[in-house]
Design a protein around this nucleic acid. Structure first.
Lengths: 338, 338
DNA sequence: CTAATCTACGTTAGCGCTAACGAACGTCTG
DNA sequence: CAGACGTTCGTTAGCGCTAACGTAGATTAG
């Protein structure tokens, strides 16, 4: 009834060669004459033969799987990064095993452990903050590993990303030059997004150095959503403390929520208060009042990261850290104050 | 230097049992005393033994991989569906191999072919429109297959989704009852999104049956983006033909673009023209003027789909088609006309 | 008390492929 | 024209696991 898939044996018998010759022909490696190669591949196609990847992976002690762990796909940032990598990996013949950690390092760690059971060709992690066991296992197993979106001095293997602390400083410098002097930062629970903490540190560095003012920090919910932006902004506006002259949000999503909330409270943007996001998400292009935000080159980062990783897998010497610069998008939610 | 991962042999030797006993103990299957099982699993942990999944997949002639093909992750719809499935599959011990077809059936087809080389435990496809070769191969290989997001009478194996034609009718009925008589529909290139075509058909069915009016159809760009919504709306507003009294968009994204464009053209929403979306994306909850749209239960659909598929994989009898109902979200971008 | 049944293992025989080595044959060199 | 070398195969020996069957000893039934 259900026809059995032909194996390499069937092809070898039909072509009257050894299975090694079929193996070589199918994989496009040396050691087969052009004549025989063409004959064999044609025959394989006719028979409907496809190599069993499990068997190939077992025999070769590595697979064509690439494991990718991202915090979430609801954040456009990671969907963009994934898309940037996807095409490159796909063209190179790799399959993507996806994990979403929900920003939980221990979930990432247990996934990495499971992933290694497949002897993947490579592993991609987001950010540079990982459980010690993750770093250890990946290095131990000598799996090519890419850390993407953030950078550090001592990556597990290689990293491609932005300098988030520098991004925070860039934003801070811009705001300071515009004349803002009492910025607030609205983020999420501490430790949930290490990159955001770095940007905050960069922002604080500018304001502490140049002005002595502290950046007021509000921590909203667990996830960086529209709603979190609204809630954080509400608690800021309803507090009796002096109002900030601008609010920096963890990302654009939260900034949109904050923008709406400020307007509902009768505040004019940017006249009464400045609103600053991060990422320059797609929606920003179609908003009536585009956000002042930082453009993060996510697709580029993804494809560059994938290329670096492929080069690394082929044994090439590659920089262990590539920094992709962010650029400022001066929108209409901030203004020159003096 | 780099320690070799212990194999099942090493564990068997250390525990002084046969490798079959270790295999049984690790997999939690019958035939090992509780004492020995505990002893072996503890020992395996100490040694750092983890079963090689490639070897297990080869020997058992199937893997714990589940292949999932979605058109894109930029569309929140598919990110939601994926998230709904993810947790269920993960808890059941499966790993997810992801594909993005960019709405191209031939890319989906070639991915399915590659995916089958892994002997996956199951395959998930989005929608019910697939290349014949895909249907044939999946049935031939007897791989449990879930088609999600749309439904049909003759799924490859099982399907869980919405009746998009009915959704279109639901929207049409609502608009008709509000008093709208000259609706337009703004979508994308024909054939790029079969579900959208079904919804359009449902909408048209209502207006042809009840009124005799045709629904004016504008086809914008390739992708259903904000920008596509803007472009489609522009070409509609600038055409000399009679203006529609409301515009239905392929989805919320395009509707947001359309809303902005209409307002820029001095049209008041909903007084001058109605705007209707589809999906009730997250952003809708925080918009000053929430869209009239259809709520699609995507997370639910994902988890239900995953559960059905797991049941199917365990050999249980499951409905080959489960319909998840959509519900109307009456927003502030339409009004009662008479 | 014997035969049938069950439990808890071990043994055998692969799963479908690849790495490593070897052998036959042709080609080139000095 | 002998020896060195390259090309194109084939043979051998697994990769690390599991399915299927075999077998002792314990348990139960009659």
């Amino acid at each position: 009834m259900s026809q059995v898939r032909p194996t390499i044996h069937d092809v070898a018998r039909a072509a009257d060669v050894s299975i090694m010759t079929v193996s070589r022909a199918m994989r496009g490696i040396e050691g087969v004459s052009a004549r025989k190669r063409a004959e064999i591949t044609a025959l394989a196609k006719t028979l409907g033969y496809r190599p069993n990847r499990n068997a190939a992976s077992l025999a070769a002690a590595n697979s064509t799987l690439i494991g990718i762990s991202l915090p979430t796909l609801f954040n456009e940032v990671f969907a963009d990064i994934l898309d940037g990598m996807r095409r490159t990996f796909e063209m190179a013949g790799f399959d993507i095993v996806l994990d979403n950690s929900d920003y939980d390092p221990s979930r990432e760690a247990s996934w990495v452990e499971r992933m290694l059971d497949w002897r993947p060709a490579a592993v991609v992690l987001s950010g540079v903050d990982h459980a010690d066991s993750v770093r250890h296992q990946l290095r131990q197993a000598a799996i090519p590993t890419l850390e993407i979106w953030d950078i550090c001095r001592d990556p597990i293997d290689i990293c491609v990303g932005m300098d988030h602390e520098a991004a925070g400083r860039l934003l801070g410098q811009h705001l300071f030059q515009l004349g803002y002097r009492r910025p607030a930062f609205i983020g999420i629970e501490a430790g949930r997004d290490p990159r955001a903490e770095k940007r905050l540190a960069g922002l604080c560095a500018i304001y502490q150095k140049t002005d002595g003012h502290d950046v007021r920090v509000i921590r909203s919910q667990r996830h960086a959503s529209f709603e979190a932006g609204m809630m954080g902004t509400l608690s800021l506006l309803e507090s009796p403390a002096a109002k900030p002259d601008c609010i920096c949000y963890l990302n654009d999503h939260m900034a949109f929520g904050g923008l709406t909330t400020c307007e509902k409270h009768g505040l004019r943007i940017p006249e009464d208060i400045g609103i600053v996001g991060f990422n320059n998400l797609g929606i920003n292009a179609v908003l009536a009042k585009p956000l002042t935000t930082l453009i993060t080159p996510r697709l580029l980062m993804g494809s560059l990261g994938a290329q670096q990783l492929l080069a690394r897998m082929h044994g090439a010497k590659v920089d262990n850290c590539r920094i992709v610069p962010a650029t400022l998008a001066a929108g209409q939610t901030t203004r020159r104050i003096f």
